[in-house]
Design a binder for these strands. Structure first.
Lengths: 204, 204
DNA sequence: AATATACGATACTACGAAGTTTCGAAATTC
DNA sequence: GAATTTCGAAACTTCGTAGTATCGTATATT
């Protein structure tokens, strides 16, 4: 209740003049996202975004400080709807489904968006920070939370979760970024078994 | 014997005119490599290479078709001396040392060269092909060969080596490319244990 | 000595993309 | 209806870099 947002203040008086066109805003972001599915950060031009969005380049620079800011915001919005997390209660199944979902995402059209971002992050600290904050860390946190629920039960008491997270996501990014971007049919299953044997409680 | 190389032919008659200066060649490659330790592929300019090498830009374009070709060749030469592989005979120790060596490489100055290459590979198929051919595949092959020697002994008969390779290298690239580039002290040990539990023969 | 090729330095050209400005039209408040 | 702000279109400026061309010099062969 006491948490007042700037939005409330803004809502009292509407600004004069023609209001910002929310439609063109979303078209611009959408265009940026679509272009990221085909090209690298540096290859995407402001002109291309404008043309694809059916917008004016002036409109882009009216609301974003530079071209990269559009792409960064495009990732934020796209990723916001990608975070539902499986929770079946079974450790193996939770891991397996999570990996499988991620593989599906990475091998789909959106996969290129991630490679483009990781690539750009290598030479742009702001891109790197955004990628970590809006994607990598939330994703890791979700998996971590899920794993914690199994600690002392299906999962060993002393499991090193940071290591386990790397063991899960590392191979996927590795293949996507340095390999042929293909994942064999049972890849998620095989990876799940390796990780599982590393953390499972001995049931002897 | 029957495999004649162009070099033999060239050696019979030396070309007329001033011979190519091998020193400037190596200085140019060295300059490219050093610049890759600080900047991305796209950020490195031909002028910068020339200046750092104390060479002329004309000399660069005399021997290389374009700027990127210099950087690609620089990687080839640099990597050629990086491939000695541990072989202690003990599975755990072999894996551990290999991972440890790799981490040391990645966290050193040369680490940036790899991130730069992986980044560039995302939008340049030729860079991607070179990276795979001169670094990724030889490295994987070495580890694979080593692991094969343990099959049926310390390692399970049915271990999926492609998966194991990803489990070893994946987390390292993942941290290097999407994380904070830091590896905790016992990282190699912890990762070794996870991988090992996934492939070790049950000794019960 | 003549010829041929490489070298470093430097000026130069070509081009693409970032970002700005201008304009007439549209949407909103007062 | 006047003022204000946005919009798309398009021309425009600015700038950095790739790649080339020129030149005087160095180093080789014949």
């Amino acid at each position: 209740m006491s948490i007042s947002t700037t939005k409330i203040v803004e809502d009292t008086h509407r600004a004069r003049g023609r209001p910002r066109c929310e439609d063109s805003r979303s078209r611009i972001l959408q265009a940026g996202l679509e272009l990221l599915e085909q090209a690298s950060f540096a290859e995407i031009t402001a002109d291309a975004i404008a043309e694809r969005a059916g917008a004016s380049k002036a409109t882009i620079y009216r609301w974003w400080p530079n071209k990269d800011a559009v792409l960064v915001e495009a990732l934020r919005e796209a990723v916001a709807q990608e975070l539902p997390f499986p929770n079946t209660g079974d450790l193996r199944e939770d891991i397996r489904q999570n990996l499988q979902n991620f593989i599906k995402l990475l091998t789909g059209r959106r996969g290129r968006v991630f490679t483009a971002f990781v690539a750009a992050a290598q030479s742009d600290p702001e891109v790197a920070e955004t990628f970590q904050r809006v994607w990598r860390e939330p994703r890791r946190q979700s998996l971590k939370t899920m794993l914690e629920q199994h600690r002392g039960k299906q999962m060993r008491e002393d499991a090193d979760l940071e290591m386990v997270l790397d063991a899960c996501y590392g191979p996927l990014y590795y293949r996507l970024l340095t390999g042929n971007r293909k994942f064999s049919e049972g890849y998620a299953d095989a990876l799940t078994e390796i990780v599982l044997q590393g953390i499972a409680n001995r049931q002897a």
